[in-house]
Amino acid sequence: MSNLCQNRDVYAFWDAFHPSERANRIIVQQMIDGTQNYMSPMNLSTILAMDSKF
């Protein structure tokens, strides 16, 4: 019943509230290997690397 964004790879939101596929990829990429500006005190890659040492 809703109208989806025609090109979800270009736009971050397909309406005022729902992120598109592109926005979700940006968010996940920041979670995985984002800098401390966005993921503090560390990103997921750092946590997984620390966990693999034990």
Score class of each variant (00 low, 15 high):
2 S>M: 12
2 S>L: 12
2 S>G: 11
3 N>E: 15
3 N>V: 15
4 L>A: 14
4 L>G: 11
4 L>S: 13
4 L>V: 08
4 L>F: 14
4 L>D: 12
4 L>K: 15
4 L>I: 08
5 C>H: 07
6 Q>K: 15
7 N>D: 15
8 R>N: 08
9 D>R: 05
9 D>G: 06
9 D>K: 05
9 D>S: 10
9 D>Y: 03
10 V>Q: 07
10 V>R: 05
11 Y>T: 07
11 Y>K: 09
11 Y>P: 00
12 A>S: 12
12 A>P: 04
12 A>G: 08
12 A>N: 14
13 F>V: 03
14 W>A: 03
14 W>V: 02
15 D>G: 09
15 D>V: 08
15 D>K: 09
15 D>C: 09
16 A>V: 09
16 A>G: 10
16 A>K: 10
16 A>Y: 10
16 A>N: 13
17 F>W: 13
17 F>E: 13
17 F>R: 05
18 H>T: 13
18 H>L: 05
19 P>M: 04
19 P>S: 03
20 S>F: 02
20 S>Q: 05
20 S>K: 02
21 E>M: 05
21 E>Y: 03
21 E>S: 08
22 R>D: 00
22 R>K: 13
22 R>L: 11
22 R>Q: 04
23 A>M: 11
23 A>S: 06
24 N>G: 03
24 N>E: 09
24 N>W: 14
24 N>H: 15
24 N>M: 14
24 N>F: 10
25 R>F: 02
25 R>A: 06
25 R>I: 04
26 I>F: 01
26 I>P: 00
26 I>H: 00
27 I>P: 01
28 V>H: 04
28 V>R: 08
29 Q>Y: 03
30 Q>C: 02
30 Q>D: 02
30 Q>S: 04
32 I>E: 06
32 I>D: 02
32 I>M: 13
32 I>C: 07
33 D>A: 14
33 D>R: 15
35 T>N: 11
35 T>K: 11
36 Q>K: 15
36 Q>D: 08
36 Q>F: 01
37 N>R: 15
38 Y>A: 09
38 Y>H: 09
38 Y>G: 04
38 Y>M: 08
38 Y>V: 15
39 M>D: 01
40 S>M: 06
41 P>N: 05
41 P>L: 03
41 P>G: 03
41 P>D: 06
42 M>I: 02
42 M>C: 09
43 N>H: 10
43 N>E: 02
43 N>W: 02
45 S>V: 00
45 S>P: 01
46 T>L: 07
46 T>E: 08
46 T>G: 00
46 T>V: 11
47 I>K: 13
47 I>A: 11
48 L>T: 07
49 A>N: 12
49 A>H: 07
49 A>Y: 04
49 A>C: 03
50 M>R: 15
51 D>T: 07
51 D>G: 00
52 S>H: 07
52 S>P: 00
53 K>I: 02
53 K>A: 06
53 K>P: 00
53 K>R: 13
54 F>T: 06
54 F>V: 02
